[in-house]
Design a protein around this nucleic acid. Sequence first.
DNA 1: CCGGAACATGTGGTCGGACCACAGAGCCGA
DNA 2: TCGGCTCTGTGGTCCGACCACATGTTCCGG
Lengths: 253, 253
Amino acid sequence: MPVEWQPVQQSRTHELVLRSIEERVVAGELRAGDRLPPERELAPVLGVSRSALREALRVLETVGVLVAQPGRGPDAGARIVRNPDDALGRLLRLHFALGSYSLHDVLEARVVLERSSFEGAACHAPIEDLDEAAELVAGMAEPGIGVSAFNDLDTRFHVLIARSSGNALTSTLTSAVRESVRPLILRALEAVEDWPATARALNAEHRTLLTLVREGSGPEAADLVEWHIRGLHGTLVDGPDGPDGPDGPDGPR
Amino acid sequence: MPVEWQPVQQSRTHELVLRSIEERVVAGELRAGDRLPPERELAPVLGVSRSALREALRVLETVGVLVAQPGRGPDAGARIVRNPDDALGRLLRLHFALGSYSLHDVLEARVVLERSSFEGAACHAPIEDLDEAAELVAGMAEPGIGVSAFNDLDTRFHVLIARSSGNALTSTLTSAVRESVRPLILRALEAVEDWPATARALNAEHRTLLTLVREGSGPEAADLVEWHIRGLHGTLVDGPDGPDGPDGPDGPR
DNA sequence: CCGGAACATGTGGTCGGACCACAGAGCCGA
DNA sequence: TCGGCTCTGTGGTCCGACCACATGTTCCGG
C-alpha cells in the first residue's frame, strides 16, 4: 500500500532550531523547570543567528512550553514550563472565528467533553472545588445580574467542574472549547427576550447539576449537562427556544 | 464576589501586534484566503520593527492561522489559512512529553473522543471513507507486518474514522490525541511478547468495528472502540495483559 | 557594624539595515 | 510564437547596536 506523499522538508532555519529543541523535550532531556542558556550563548552554539533562535523560542512560547523574562537572577531567562491552556484557548478561538469549526461541531464536542467532566467530577471532585462551584452558582443567582457577568461566572463554573474532574487533558480541552464560544454565548444571551426568566431556568439547572455531582450521581449529571448545553446552544442557532421547546425532552424539571 | 487578579498587561511589542491581528481575525475582517500586506509595508504601518512583526506572524503561523511563502505572484506572501491540526498535534505532543497529562488522562480523553467519532461515523461516514478504512484494516492484516507499519496504519485508521464522523473539531482533537501517544503505543507494541497473536486480536477488533460502522450500529461501535482503546492502553501501563485479563470484561469476543 | 544608595552586570526585547534565495513578471531576441 | 534572460518583490536570515529592567555588587555615610 503506497503511503501518501509527504511535504518536503522545510529548510527554514528557525524550524530546524525548533525541531532540535523539541527533540530534547520529547527525549526528556529538557523538563519543566529547566532553564535554557541565554539567547546570546545558545544561538552561536546552534550555529544560527539570534533572530532565528528567537523565532523558534517564540513558537515554544506560544504552545505554552516556554516562558521568558528579562532581568537577572534565578527567575530570569527562558524556562521550560507546562501551560497548555492559554495556547489551546487561542488556537480554538482563532479557528472558530475563521470558521474551521461549525457551531454544531462545537456543540457536540462540548457535550462529549462536559459529560465526561461531570461524570469525573461526581467521582473525585474535592469538596473545596464544589464549595467554590456553589459560590459561583450563587453568584449567578443574584437578582439583576448582567448578561456579561453571568456569562463569566457560567464559564468559570463549567471550567471549574472540568478541572475538578481529575483529568487535566479533558479539563484543558473543555476550558478551551468553552472559552472559544464565550462571545457567541454572550451575544445569544443578550438577544434573549425574557432574560430574568432565562437566568432563573439556567440557575435551576446549575443547582441541580451541582447537587447531582455532590451526591456522586455521575450518569444523571452527565445527562443533565448534555441537556443544559444543547438547550443553550439551541438558542444560538434557533432562537430563544430550542427545537424541543422550552422544557426538556422529558418535560419540565 | 471578587474576581481573581489578572496578570498585568504585558507590553511586549510583538504581543501588541499579535493582539491587533487577532482582533481582525475574530472580528471577521481577516478571513481564510486573505493576504496580509508585505512585512516591509505592514511593519511601519503598525509602528513596529520588522522583527517584532515577524515574531507575531510566527505565532500565528504556529497556531495554523497563517502560512507564508516567499517569491512573487498570487501565491506569495502571508495568507490566512485554516490548518489547526499540526498546531494541536505539536501542542499535545510536547505537553504530553513534559508530563502535563498523565497516561490515564489521555486514555480517558481518547475513549470519550473516539466513542463520539465512531458514533458519528456510523451515522454519516461517506462510503469512500469506509472503503479506505477497509484498505487500512486489510493492510494491518498482512502477515508479517512490522510493529512500526502497524502503528502507522492504526493511527491512520482511527484518524480517518474521526474525520469521517463529520465533526471537524472532534476529528482534530482525536487526531492530535492519537498522535501524541503514537510513540508510546509503538514502544508498547514492540514490547509485546506474542506480536502476531496481538496483531490478530487487534485486527479482529478493527474488522468488527468497521462492520458495525458500516451497518450504522453507532452505540455498539462506541462500546467496542472503548474496549479496544482500554485494552491497548492497559498494555501500556500494566504490561501485555490488561487488568481484566486477556479477554474483555464480558469474556472472549 | 549596618544600611541604603549608586553602580555594574546580565537578561530578554526591540530596532534598523543589509544581504540571500527564490519564484513569478515582464522583456527581448530568435 | 516561443524560449531564455533580467527585473522585481517576497519572505528568510544575519549582524550590530541599543533599551528596559531586575538583580547583584560595591561603596559610602551613619
